[in-house]
């Protein structure tokens, strides 16, 4: 089993992801420079958070033209796992691997805090080890996390169970008050129809050690590891 963490110019959560995979997941992991075009040998790639290309034009808009992204599309089409976190989620939306887009937070602020996330679907490679409805405490750190999509896309997401995480209060109630950025229907993370590609704004790689405030992110990586093992 081998993980890869893609590094774009401006990525800054790449080392956090690497740390979690090597230390807590305990699996081999390598950095992948964005100019690489060959992802054979990897079972899962993480598209990490940060400010790829300085967020110029739109968040993730220029990263989608990096050479590695053609390989990521092919990798995803083979059913392998692609996990986008924060800027990684924005990049996957820009690249068309996930539907919708992430726009400026409703209150215009850069928000950096722990939020509660409700697990809406346990039947994904990223959440199989978490009970449906469970509330996770995971930090967000973004200015453009306001998820938008058209009505047709939204209904498809709902019908297919592609909405994986929603912002909620500590009791798991999905309320307007618990929505930090104005995201449609409190959406914090979605997967593609085949469920091998997941994007989320919160940072589970920053929530794997109690010392850092929460280790609720661990079960997401544990689920993914199990899915990779089963995928063979």
């Amino acid at each position: 089993m081998k993980f890869g963490v893609i590094v774009f110019p401006g990525s800054n959560c790449d080392h956090d992801a690497y740390h979690v995979i090597s230390k807590h997941v305990g699996q081999p992991v390598e950095f992948i420079w964005h100019k690489e075009t060959d992802l054979s040998g990897y079972d899962a790639v993480i598209v990490p958070g940060g400010f790829s290309y300085g967020d110029y034009l739109r968040c993730g808009a220029l990263a989608k033209f990096s050479p590695v992204m053609a390989a990521v599309k092919e990798f995803a089409a083979q059913g392998k796992f692609v996990f986008g976190i924060c800027n990684g989620f924005q990049i996957l939306c820009e690249a068309g691997l996930l539907p919708g887009a992430l726009i400026r937070n409703k209150n215009l602020h850069f928000i950096c805090k722990h939020v509660n996330l409700k697990v809406e679907n346990s039947n994904t490679p990223y959440t199989s080890e978490i009970a449906e409805g469970e509330v996770l405490s995971i930090p967000i750190a973004h200015a453009e996390g306001n998820y938008v999509c058209d009505d047709e896309t939204f209904h498809q997401l709902e019908e297919n169970g592609q909405i994986v995480f929603r912002y909620c209060d500590e009791n798991g109630e999905v309320t307007d008050e618990a929505n930090p950025n104005g995201a449609r229907s409190n959406i914090a993370g979605i997967c593609n129809q085949d469920r091998n590609v997941l994007g989320m704004m919160p940072h589970p790689e920053r929530a794997c050690e109690v010392l850092l405030g929460s280790d609720d992110g661990r079960n997401i990586f544990r689920s993914l590891t199990k899915a990779i093992a089963a995928h063979g």
């Binding site: 726009i103 400026r104 409703k106 215009l108 306001n146 938008v148 058209d150 104005g182």
Partner: peptide
């Protein structure tokens, strides 16, 4: 330009 249906918080500010 943003589509009319998309919220523009910067424009609002």
């Amino acid at each position: 330009t943003l589509k009319p249906s998309v919220l523009d918080p910067q424009g609002k500010a």
